[in-house]
Design a protein around this nucleic acid. Structure first.
Lengths: 168, 168
DNA sequence: GAACCGCACTTCGAATTCAAAGCAAGTAAG
DNA sequence: CTTACTTGCTTTGAATTCGAAGTGCGGTTC
């Protein structure tokens, strides 16, 4: 860990490229499917899926934004689109007048229910089909550890340029 | 539920989410670093890096677009930005008057040389630091197999809907 | 209870991206 | 040579995204 500054070795480099390529291709394929099957972007799908999973099918905008890796303004835009399509509704929170509660409509639930099987199917076909049980276990272990590590690692703004922080 | 097309089991689901989150966070961190350290987007970095690696520091636009997962028009835009900054030059190909040869300038090489160590360092810190040798080997094996599988799997345009097909 | 600060969300402007259309150079057929 | 098709790239218009600024509510302090 206090190595001078060795580059990545060829195995690491290969793993890095493979990770980027795999996730990119997977993202692309899933995006394409959602668009074709339900006219949804991946972000919209995430928003709806998260709402369907939530206690009463509703969440505050902020909680939604924290779940999805997304800016507040971007979420407002996407929520506007989903609202226009009748897949969600937005109403002021009874608790805090500043907050906006987002709720999935029945149409939203139906759309997710209609799209989810194909989504899952695509993921299985692309990602898990070529994997053995051992592969899956190994991947889970490694990715789990890496994810925890990343979550725990501070963003570290490389160069204090214009006093910006990542607080959107 | 447990018939020909079962959903993903919880381990698979976890691996899928972990993969998406890890790649997203990694992408974000790397993007942020490149922006702060060299005022480059990841795509621009990829373009320059690919050119530096090329035989004489030059490639045709098409070859560049094939290497990067990118649309032709998007590449034109980015090449325009890099050209404006003096990091690349564009000139008609001697062989085929339709083609445009893109060449890295010395400034481009210097920028990549300046940015690369930090880039590699960030990747090592985020991705490889929490991994053991075994982890790395396992990850390489699995991702390599998955990547080959994905490359071999045809894009399959899920539903021939309203013409929204991909070809670029 | 008035002034103030912070939070939640939206609006606005700019940047980036793609698909479709357009243009120019090469290739094939008659 | 002319017509038609293909290829390589650029331009255009629309969509998506973010950061910064704006609006309004809630809690604090005096």
């Amino acid at each position: 860990m206090s190595d001078p500054a060795p580059g990545l070795n060829s195995e690491q480099l290969g793993a890095y490229f493979a990770l980027m390529e795999v996730s990119s291709l997977l993202q692309y394929a899933v995006d394409e499917h959602l668009r074709a099957d339900g006219d949804l972007s991946y972000v919209q799908f995430q928003i709806l899926a998260r709402l369907v999973d939530a206690p009463e099918g509703r969440l505050r905008m902020t909680d939604l934004a924290d779940g999805v890796v997304y800016s507040r303004s971007g979420l407002t835009y996407q929520a506007g689109l989903l609202d226009k399509r009748g897949l969600i509704t937005r109403s002021p929170s009874p608790d805090d007048e500043r907050s906006v509660m987002v709720t999935v409509t029945d149409a939203g639930r139906e759309l997710i229910a209609r799209v989810l099987p194909g989504h899952v199917d695509r993921v299985r076909q692309l990602l898990f089909e070529p994997m053995t049980g051992k592969d899956l276990a190994a991947l889970s272990t490694v990715l789990g550890r890496v994810r925890d590590h990343m979550r725990a690692t501070p963003p570290r703004s490389a160069k204090p340029r214009a006093g910006r922080n990542r607080a959107g």
